[in-house]
Every structure is written in C-alpha cells, then in structure tokens.
C-alpha cells in the first residue's frame, strides 16, 4: 500500500468496514523493528549534520589537514569482521542453530571491543604526537567523530550483553532470536557510518 494512496483515501466512506481496508498494518514489521529504523533515522540526521558541519568548517583558512593514524585501517577491518560475525549470528538464529549463534555473537562482541580499544590507541597516538583538540578544528573533529561513533557502538554492546543475559534466563525464544537480527542491522548501520566518517577524515 503506497503512502500516497493511503493519504488520499476518503475516510468518511466505508463506514462500518473493518477488514478489507487499505491500511491494515500487515507489513509484518514488529514494533521493535520499526523503533530501530526510526532510531537509525535519528542517528542519520545527527551524523549527517555533523558531516555537513565538518565540511563547512574545513573550508576555513585555519584548517590544518591531519595525517590520520595508520591503525584506523586495522580498526576498520576489525569492525567489518564484527559486522560479519553479527550477520552470521543472525543467520544462525533464523535457522535455529543456537550454539552457532552464541559463538558468533561472542565473536562479534569481542571484535567490537577490539575496535573500540583500537580507536583508543589511535587517540593515544594522536595525543603523543601532539595533536590536541584545542589546537586545530581538524583534530577536534577527529576526537569528536571517533568518540561519538564509539559511544553508539557501546550502546549497541549494552543491548547485546543484556540480550545474552536474557538468553541465559529464558532460553533462545523467538523474540530473542528476532532481536539478534536487529542487532545485526544496527552493527551494519554503524559500519556504514564509520566508513563515511573515515572517508571524510581521510579526505581532509
């Protein structure tokens, strides 16, 4: 049912009908899924605005291009692997392979933590090399972007861990399995955000 035909429907007609109306909530999306996608829209708005701001600020004469730490490449690879692991967990969940799912989830969690640790190392290298946030906006943006992105991942980790606890308590029920696929979506999304941020950081 397209949005346009939905909002051109004449509601004063069809009094008495309940079934058979256009708009029957049959899209099969669960509330959690809708909630997640909405949240991703909010986060997209946030990061898009940040990137526009970054671009605008980078056009000012005091901008000093930053040599990004090499380790970011390694971190990127780790994050890709984390995303793959979560996708495998999600696939395993769909086929009800509980133990495979658990292993992939743990792998995904560990890789994510490794990514965050790698980002911290990058920070450390930057500070040691004397790139302080207050010195130049390029440095400040570097800390800001990596920090915010890591915060979003930590939020995801919090969900992942609480999911693990729930699985321990109630066993791998349908609802839990469904949540695994949502986690995977969130991780893929944050991977995309990271790639966008990384490209932007590299280019300027």
């Amino acid at each position: 049912m397209s949005f346009l035909s939905k909002i051109t429907e004449k509601p004063w007609e069809h009094a008495g009908e309940i079934e058979g109306l256009h708009d029957r909530l049959e899209n099969g999306y669960s509330a959690n899924r809708t909630g997640l996608f909405l949240f991703l829209a909010v986060v997209s708005s946030l990061f898009t605005l940040f990137m526009i701001t970054y671009y605008t600020r980078s056009q000012f004469p005091d901008w000093e291009v930053l040599a990004d730490p090499r380790i970011l490449w390694v971190n990127t690879a780790v994050l890709v692997l984390a995303s793959v692991a979560l996708q495998m967990a999600s696939n395993a969940a769909k086929q009800n392979k509980t133990s495979a799912m658990r292993n992939s989830l743990i792998a995904g969690g560990v890789l994510t933590l490794a990514f965050i640790a790698g980002q911290l190392i990058a920070w450390d290298q930057m500070v040691k090399a004397g790139y302080y946030a207050a010195d130049n906006p390029a440095n400040a943006f570097f800390y800001l972007f990596t920090g915010l992105h890591a915060l979003h991942l930590l939020g995801g980790m919090w969900f992942l861990v609480s999911l693990g606890f729930r699985m321990k308590q109630t066993g791998a029920k349908d609802k839990v399995l469904h949540s695994v696929s949502l986690c995977a979506i969130y991780w893929h999304y944050l991977l995309i955000v990271w790639l966008a941020l990384f490209t932007l950081l590299l280019r300027t």
């Binding site: 939905k6 909002i7 429907e9 004449k10 509601p11 009908e17 309940i18 109306l21 256009h22 708009d23 029957r24 909530l25 999306y29 669960s30 509330a31 809708t34 909630g35 909405l38």
Partner: peptide
C-alpha cells in the same frame, strides 16, 4: 511514532 504506526486497534486506519 512507533505506537501510531504499530499499535492501532483494528479498523483504525491512518486516515
């Protein structure tokens, strides 16, 4: 937003 999209009772179309 999610409630409006997902929790309407039967017969309650958007319009």
């Amino acid at each position: 937003v999610t409630t409006v999209l997902q929790a309407r009772c039967r017969g309650m179309t958007m319009m």
